[in-house]
């Protein structure tokens, strides 16, 4: 349904940010595990993986920020509280919940990237 030129929200837009977190997490873990396998040479340098994780982190953070912005842009102009049975309320609720989840996911991606900042080899 089209209304006020705003973008409709669904369960998929709600879980987009944490899904990005999940992909970032999995990619970082697999990349590092692959680079260090079979865990025999513990002083092997993992510079390439760290750069990869750095890039993945920036991309993920930008994507999550976009989802946050998309929700916030619509939500800030709302006057409804989100707790009544109208289409407006449903949208407002989904937007606000999306903002919260995006914030959590943003923080999650940042924290999950920190090991790559400090750890330089396969020890």
């Amino acid at each position: 349904m089209h209304f006020f030129g705003r973008t409709p929200d669904t369960l998929w837009t709600l879980i987009a940010a944490p899904a990005i977190w999940a992909i970032h997490f999995l990619a970082s873990y697999v990349a590092a595990a692959y680079a260090c396998a079979p865990n025999a040479d513990i002083f092997r340098d993992i510079g390439g993986v760290r750069v990869f994780i750095g890039i993945a982190t920036v991309v993920s953070l930008v994507l999550i920020a976009l989802f946050f912005y998309r929700a916030w842009r619509d939500w800030r102009r709302r006057t409804t509280g989100g707790d009544r049975g109208t289409r407006q309320d449903q949208e407002g609720f989904l937007e606000f919940a999306t903002m919260l989840l995006a914030s959590l996911s943003f923080l999650g991606v940042l924290l999950d990237a920190t090991p790559a900042l400090f750890i330089v080899d396969c020890r």
């Binding site: 873990y29 595990a33 090991p115 750890i119």
Partner: peptide, 21 residues
């Protein structure tokens, strides 16, 4: 189990993040 420290780091970070929600 002898996984590399960087792997442990990812999971430590996520384990701390889950405390927020």
């Amino acid at each position: 189990t002898g996984l590399p420290a960087i792997s442990l780091g990812f999971f430590t970070a996520a384990s701390e993040v889950v405390a927020i929600p």
